[in-house]
Design a protein around this nucleic acid. Sequence first.
DNA 1: GATGAATGAGCGTTCATTCAT
DNA 2: GATGAATGAACGCTCATTCAT
Lengths: 210, 210, 210, 210
Amino acid sequence: MEKRMTKRQIAAQETKKKIIEAARTVISEKSFETVSIDDIMAEAGLGKGTFYTHFGRKEDVVYELNKTDFYHLAEIVNGMEDKDIMEKLEYYCREFMKSIERSGIEICRQWIKNNLSGNTMCGIEDKDGNAISKYRYDYQAMHSVLSEAVRRGQLIADTPVDALSLLFNAELYGLMTAWCMSDGAAVGSENIKAFRIYILEQSIRPFMTK
Amino acid sequence: MEKRMTKRQIAAQETKKKIIEAARTVISEKSFETVSIDDIMAEAGLGKGTFYTHFGRKEDVVYELNKTDFYHLAEIVNGMEDKDIMEKLEYYCREFMKSIERSGIEICRQWIKNNLSGNTMCGIEDKDGNAISKYRYDYQAMHSVLSEAVRRGQLIADTPVDALSLLFNAELYGLMTAWCMSDGAAVGSENIKAFRIYILEQSIRPFMTK
Amino acid sequence: MEKRMTKRQIAAQETKKKIIEAARTVISEKSFETVSIDDIMAEAGLGKGTFYTHFGRKEDVVYELNKTDFYHLAEIVNGMEDKDIMEKLEYYCREFMKSIERSGIEICRQWIKNNLSGNTMCGIEDKDGNAISKYRYDYQAMHSVLSEAVRRGQLIADTPVDALSLLFNAELYGLMTAWCMSDGAAVGSENIKAFRIYILEQSIRPFMTK
Amino acid sequence: MEKRMTKRQIAAQETKKKIIEAARTVISEKSFETVSIDDIMAEAGLGKGTFYTHFGRKEDVVYELNKTDFYHLAEIVNGMEDKDIMEKLEYYCREFMKSIERSGIEICRQWIKNNLSGNTMCGIEDKDGNAISKYRYDYQAMHSVLSEAVRRGQLIADTPVDALSLLFNAELYGLMTAWCMSDGAAVGSENIKAFRIYILEQSIRPFMTK
DNA sequence: GATGAATGAGCGTTCATTCAT
DNA sequence: GATGAATGAACGCTCATTCAT
């Protein structure tokens, strides 16, 4: 259907994309509330009025904002046939922290600020087609890793998957927050090693089948 | 030093308190960005201009907001002669979460936002008289609880106090963040029980002297 | 001259008419100031830009707006060979009010608002080919009824036609305005009877030839 | 009560007046819709924001605009002990038109537009304390003049006061409307003379006691 | 110290108008 | 001739901040 687009429609779609990317940039640097349409459109190099050619209200751009690809870490981890649960969990946690650190401490701060309110949707839908928040997404990702391990017999059936998912995910969020609050001193990915040794291994061992 | 205050100064202090409490109320109901000085002062029953007698800028009231609620949890915990380390830790964590929840989810969000930058000082000084951030303060508080346990022989000398302090504190920060991001669904204080059973006990046991 | 139009020109003329009718519709519902080009062209089912193919500026459409057929009440009345002047006047006034009431109170309000400014032309030209306002048109209509009566000898030559035309027409305008302002309570057409008995007859009698 | 105003309150009241007068000026020159807050406040020599210190919305200034000019004409007329009914009526009508013309044609247009809907109250209450529309007020004023004349024996008891009040008042409204629609050509107050001679005298004479 | 009127920069939004297609 | 995306000036309105009282 995109094939039948006229040149003008393609150009318009391009313009819309430009606005979305500009919005992503400036909202990362500041925040939705403190960013103005002027800021977005100046970044996009377009006239202020053009925003309203593509969006009805300021808020509407946010919905589009996160419609981009998430790093499907959970899928990757669950696809690791030959690894045991400890390795999987450590890999997941390490990559989670790395991907955060890659984006830089300032973007991370913005990300936390923007997601602190639960009604900020991440652009991904759950199995029932409902929009979910990034927190919910991350919780479900961790949950799927543990559930998968139960399903594969790596963890016993009685493993408190809900509680552990929440706790492990919270630890990641906490390390991320600590990283920001310590101005980078408490490097998240470096603490993953300690997390594995002192927490992950101790907490998981009671539920391992072998 | 407060003894030598004139009546006028006392009245002014009273006014300032009134403003802080009004700010807490309205910011709890809305959010810092969407609340106006008008809103705060109307709630306080005071004139708009009075705000600027006590605060330089709108943001400054937030600083005071958090200052009020400080709780010398570590001191209380360290003063518990008859408790073992597990009880102390659980008590510390539970009270930490409770005090956060008491202030309300919106204040908590504000608090996180304001402290995400490491140069936000919490108004408390360390032993050397230097201003420290809340994150630093909380880390040191957790650290002092564990150190004290080592000193008293409740934990072995080789206990990785630094790493555990960071990890445990991060868990608390993560639960706090999860609380905000889930719009209150992931109640922090309720998860403290799971934290104790699945994480604290498993992580601490290897270092307990008996 | 319209005979030599190409198909394209005919289609364009059709488009222009469509715009004018759409403008009439939406301006009746709202008002010129509050109606946008978007509103007009959406009603017309045409693209926004097309407006400027046919009109230089927004205001230009108003000129065309009323270039449609008026109810030539005056001509009808003047064609009544067998009626006396009182009957003619009452007929004119009654039909005038009826035609207004037929369009509904809201349209009437819009009509007044739109014509309150004297530069709103009604689309009709006077004998010298000048565009005239609806007020001017109505005044001239009333004037022609009275003049005709003078010409036919129904009224004396010294009848103050100008003054009476203005006064009688003003009464009609006043009843119309009163109808709107009283939310329909002061029904115009019902008051025409009183107008005839208490005003028309008394005012005209001194000038009747018999 | 105005005596107990502080200097600041007086200054504020002065500012409000300045805004109202500036609004009157610029609205007279343009029209309410085409005049901006900027225009008004530039004319007033005040900051734009100050408008909102005194008025909630742009429209609110119009309410004050009309409020200022009210004229208890009926009371004055009814207090004229020594005048006959014709003189009273003419005086009433003439002053009515004059007071309208004093405010300017654009204000008059605004006034008509604003009162075209019957639920616009004029800020005056009737004898029972109910808010009434300007149309109702004017009708009652005319009614009281005629009733008073009946009461004093200047008019016979059978005088159709209701009908005449409505008709005379409508004539005034019609002259007012004609004034606006003719861009000031049909000067209301000048037509009052004709109104007296050709309409008032003829209509009233049958009901005069002598 | 308390006040609230005054302020102007800035907001989100509208819309007449232009112009490449 | 018809189109609709792009534009920017202008709008009504908000609000943190100032300051004379």
